[in-house]
Design a protein around this nucleic acid. Sequence first.
DNA 1: CTGTTCTATGAATCCGCAC
DNA 2: TGTGCGGATTCATAGAACA
Lengths: 370, 370
Amino acid sequence: MNAMTKPKSAQALPLNTILDGDCIEMMNSLPAESVDLIFADPPYNLQLRGDLHRPDNSRVDAVDDDWDQFDSFAVYDQFTREWLKAARRLLKPNGAIWVIGSYHNIFRVGAALQDAGYWILNDVVWRKSNPMPNFRGKRFTNAHETMIWASKGEGAKYTFNYEALKALNEGIQMRSDWVLPICNGGERLKTADGEKAHPTQKPMSLLHRVLVGSTNPGDVVLDPFFGTGTTGAVAKMLGRDWIGIEREASYREVAERRLADIRAYDKSSLEVTRAKRAEPRVPFGQLVERGMLRPGEMLVSPTGKVAKVRADGTLVGEDVKGSIHQVGAHLEGAPSCNGWTYWHFRKDGKTVPIDVLRQQIRAEMAARPH
Amino acid sequence: MNAMTKPKSAQALPLNTILDGDCIEMMNSLPAESVDLIFADPPYNLQLRGDLHRPDNSRVDAVDDDWDQFDSFAVYDQFTREWLKAARRLLKPNGAIWVIGSYHNIFRVGAALQDAGYWILNDVVWRKSNPMPNFRGKRFTNAHETMIWASKGEGAKYTFNYEALKALNEGIQMRSDWVLPICNGGERLKTADGEKAHPTQKPMSLLHRVLVGSTNPGDVVLDPFFGTGTTGAVAKMLGRDWIGIEREASYREVAERRLADIRAYDKSSLEVTRAKRAEPRVPFGQLVERGMLRPGEMLVSPTGKVAKVRADGTLVGEDVKGSIHQVGAHLEGAPSCNGWTYWHFRKDGKTVPIDVLRQQIRAEMAARPH
DNA sequence: CTGTTCTATGAATCCGCAC
DNA sequence: TGTGCGGATTCATAGAACA
């Protein structure tokens, strides 16, 4: 790019607007090397079979929109490689990209990023504090999504506001796993008839951290899968310019209204909900996993009852199996029992409450929080 | 697989030994469909630069740095696809695989898994409670690694000890993000001169959770990148058979010594909380046959619906006949209904769920097994 | 107004055996 | 290999409803 074209290109950028159309075509119509950051939340290519019901028989409102349907991995890969190529052309040399996804698509996206020449800086895990459970008990709760942060290529510079993120994190270096709630409550946009306006609206707290960490005020942020415009909303609040691309008219309308109401630096609506830490919960099973207690080891109570530790963190006492609390309560004939103080193990000839092991783990967690 | 080959194959398995050699060759020398679980921690620090050539030996015109990178990835991808193919041949139809990696390689591994026909069940994030900080302050602290858990194919069955994992997590279903410390302290294996024996030794707590969750006692667990043998050590403790493959003699020696010292936990402590699905099925008609409920007796639901018991163990409700489940579902307008907990009978003036009668029968069956 | 209980819902590749 | 059907399965949070 020469000196002549650069100002012209910059002028041609449709800043702070939502473009209507296919993201690949629209990106290719914009001037090269004109954007500082791209945040992309592409379709995940979920492959859902039948209906899913909660144990109370209510039906889960699935993501079954047309825009998430692809015939095969090959088709999805082709789509991914094309939009990533168009995105890379748009990025300034020191620009960067974030892409978010789940296990359905993120591995294909990550490989395509690397193949396209991007250089992965981190993968960042969004750990959801309130995910939807696994209702059938057949897998782990799908409690996280993965974001990939990449520069334009190996050796390329990029923006990283280390100190700002450290401040956001109470003075401790920001880690690659972020605990944030999903988007619901008042932040969740609704249609006139009370339905959710978009099936997968992202929380502003997530974008807040991304934009504070990897852009500066005045930067241009582009989102090729704009949806209801969370990226634009947070960019506007933080004094960044934004460009959205969205082909669904209904999403664009919601986003337009939303963005019209946003004021820059409205910090109050951005405050990250920080769970005030009570004492962190430590499952008894973790003592077994960590080898602090071994399966087969005998625990004793002050009243002389005994129970044996099993590999899954349950106890077996006389005629009873269950958690440390359940077994203790049963053996004492009591309605409840605090197993942490009730059960003891033998160490160096002395009997010690298992609670000291929990305290050890909590001390580790306190020394290296978050 | 026919009846002839199965015993022969099983006999040929070199259980509880470390095989010396290249993992692909060694896996291909073992009998097909003979392994229940594969846990793999593949290398990602292959020499990606230098002496690379395309399969046809063509020279790449270096118009763009990306080409170098692409060729490097191509070599890694080929390696990945070959060992994943060999691994898939080894797996029993209901077997499963776990692969662990970081952002350097996990996206390529995940895409290769999907392309090879594996079916991803979850990605699980190992969230390190004490990671190495990022000293230069240029990126986020790399505080997690990613594991992929996959079955042999779409629709294939797999082992998932849901209740045991829930017990390990103090009664709450296990999530896809696991907070566990890295391997250090006494668990970290050292060489004679005090150096760490392996650069990426995995903690036993991680393998404990993997093996408790996705294998049963007596299962065969194979680790094609055995290293210092954490997989074998935990498998042995948990009463699973194991096979390791490792081509570095120094790692094999450390692992051999380590495994010789490991003791298996006693069998009873390896019994794990069982799922209700595993309970024996009791037909409702048996309650009628045994006289626990009489034909003509009225059952009631918590919502006030009523139905009459018939001699063949079906119910008649308003405008509907059928099983306890069918009638309940119909009366509630629900897609399904567990009749055992839905229907109640009157006993001594109180309404009691019919499930207590089923529990009586099951208790008898347990006391006098056939 | 306050504290408690009830209800709704979120990117989900969510059953298994008998016939 | 498909179909029928028994019956097992949920956590955190917001907001409404209720006492």
